[in-house]
Amino acid sequence: MDNNWIEITGGILAIGGSIFLFLGSLGLLRMPDAYNRIQTGTKASTLGTILSLAGLFFFFPGWFGKFMILILFVLITNPISSHVLARAAYFTGVPLTRKTTVDQLNESLNEDPSRRAHLRKVSTNTEEDKI
C-alpha cells in the first residue's frame, strides 16, 4: 500500500515535468522573436527534464546515481548552450521584435567605441554578407 502511494507521487511529478516540456515547446512555437524563443525553450525544458527525472526516481530508488548524473549534466550544460545561442544570434544580426523597449548591449557598445571595434572584428562575416 505504501509502495503504491510512492509510485503515484512519482507519476504525478513526471506528468508535471512533461507538462513543463510541452509548455516550453509551445512557447517555442508562439514567441515572436529568436531571443524570446531561447528564453522559453531552454529554461522550461531544463525544469521539465529535471522534474521528469525526479519523478522517475520514485519508481527506481536504486538508480539514484544515474539520475543525479543526468540532472547535474542538464543543469550545467543547458545555460551554456542558451548563452552561446543568444551570443551567436545577436552578433550575426538576427532582428529584435518591434515591441522591444530597451537594448542595453547596444547602448553600452555605443558608449564605449573600443569594445565595438573588438566586436566588429568578431563578426566581420555577417557584415560582408549584408553588403
Binding site: 515535468g17 512533461s18 516540456l21 516550453g24 515547446s25 517555442l28 529568436a34 524563443r37 531561447i38 525553450g41 531552454t42 525544458s45 531544463t46 521539465g48 527534464t49 521528469s52 527525472l53 522517475l56 539520475f67 543526468l70 542538464v74 543547458n78 548552450s81 542558451s82 545561442l85
Partner: peptide
C-alpha cells in the same frame, strides 16, 4: 534553438 529543445526533451524520453 528547436534542435536544442528537442535534444533536451530526448533525454527525458530515453529515461
Amino acid at each position: 534553438i528547436a534542435f536544442d529543445v528537442m535534444s533536451v526533451s530526448g533525454i527525458a524520453l530515453i529515461a
